[in-house]
C-alpha cells in the first residue's frame, strides 16, 4: 500500500467523524456546565463565587494535555473501567466549561448596571432576571468569542490522540505511517480542519460586525 486512495481518505473521514463528535459533545456539555459556572461566578454568595473562580483558574492555568492525562489515567487508577472515548469526552467537557464559563462571566459583568436595577425595580425574581434579561444579552455579546472558542476546541481535539483516541489528526498519522507520504496526508488533514474551522471563523467575524452595529 503506497498511495493515497479512496480507502485512505475514507479512513481520514472516520477520524473526522470522531473529531466532530468530540467537539460537539464537549461544546454542548461544556456549554451547559459553563453556564452553571458563569452563574456561580457572578453569584452573590461568596463561597459559590470562589468555587467557580477556582474551577476556572484550575482549567485555564494548566495545559490541556495535562488535564487529559490526569482525567484519563486518574479515572483508570480509581478503577473506573471506562474507554478512551468517555475519558476524553469528560476531559474536554471540563476544559470547555471553564473557558465558556469565563467568557460568559465577562459578558454578564459587562452589562450596564441599569439593566439589573430596572429588573429589580420591576420586582423580577432571580430566574426571570437571568433568563429574560441578563443571559440573552450576555450570550449575544459573547457570541463572537464563543464561536472563536469553538474553533479552538475543534482544533484542540487533536490532542486527544495522545491517549490513543483516533480522531482526525491521529488518523492522518496512521495513514501517513502506512503510505510514507506525510506531506500529502497531513496536507489533506490540514485542509479538512481548515474547511471546518474557516466557515466558523467567518461566521464569528460576521456576527461581530453585525453586533457592533447595534440592535
Amino acid at each position: 500500500m503506497d498511495k493515497f486512495g479512496f480507502p485512505e481518505f475514507l479512513f481520514l473521514l472516520q477520524g473526522l467523524k470522531w473529531t466532530v463528535l468530540l467537539t460537539i459533545i464537549s461544546f454542548v456539555g461544556g456549554g451547559i456546565i459553563g453556564l452553571v459556572i458563569a452563574l456561580a461566578r457572578v453569584s452573590p454568595v461568596k463561597t459559590i463565587q470562589r468555587a467557580a473562580t477556582a474551577y476556572i483558574a484550575l482549567f485555564q492555568g494548566t495545559p490541556l494535555l495535562m488535564q487529559l492525562f490526569v482525567i484519563y489515567y486518574g479515572l483508570a487508577l480509581m478503577s473506573f473501567n471506562i474507554d478512551a472515548w468517555v475519558a476524553v469526552s469528560i476531559a474536554y467537557t471540563a476544559h470547555a466549561s471553564a473557558f465558556l464559563g469565563d467568557i460568559w462571566r465577562g459578558a454578564i459583568q459587562s452589562l450596564p448596571k441599569g439593566q439589573i436595577e430596572a429588573s429589580n425595580a420591576l420586582a423580577l425574581g432571580y430566574v426571570s432576571r437571568m433568563r429574560d434579561i441578563v443571559l440573552p444579552q450576555a450570550l449575544k455579546i459573547s457570541l463572537p468569542a464563543t464561536i472563536g472558542f469553538a474553533v479552538q476546541l475543534t482544533k484542540g481535539t487533536s490532542l486527544a490522540a495522545i491517549v490513543g483516541f483516533v480522531e482526525l489528526a491521529r488518523a492522518g498519522q496512521i495513514v501517513s505511517n502506512l503510505i510514507f507520504q506525510p506531506l500529502l496526508v497531513f496536507g489533506v488533514v490540514g485542509a479538512i480542519y481548515f474547511f471546518i474551522c474557516w466557515p466558523m471563523s467567518i461566521l464569528g467575524s460576521h456576527l461581530e460586525r453585525k453586533l457592533s452595529l447595534g440592535y
Partner: peptide, 29 residues
C-alpha cells in the same frame, strides 16, 4: 410590586421590543 421607578438613563431592555419591555414583569411577576 407597589413602587414604579423611572431612571435617568431609561434602562429599557435593549433586546426586547417595546411591547415586551412592558409585558415582561406582568407575565413573570
Amino acid at each position: 410590586r407597589e413602587v414604579g421607578m423611572v431612571f435617568q438613563s431609561f434602562n429599557l431592555f435593549p433586546h426586547l421590543k417595546i411591547i415586551d419591555n412592558c409585558t415582561l414583569a406582568l407575565r413573570r411577576v
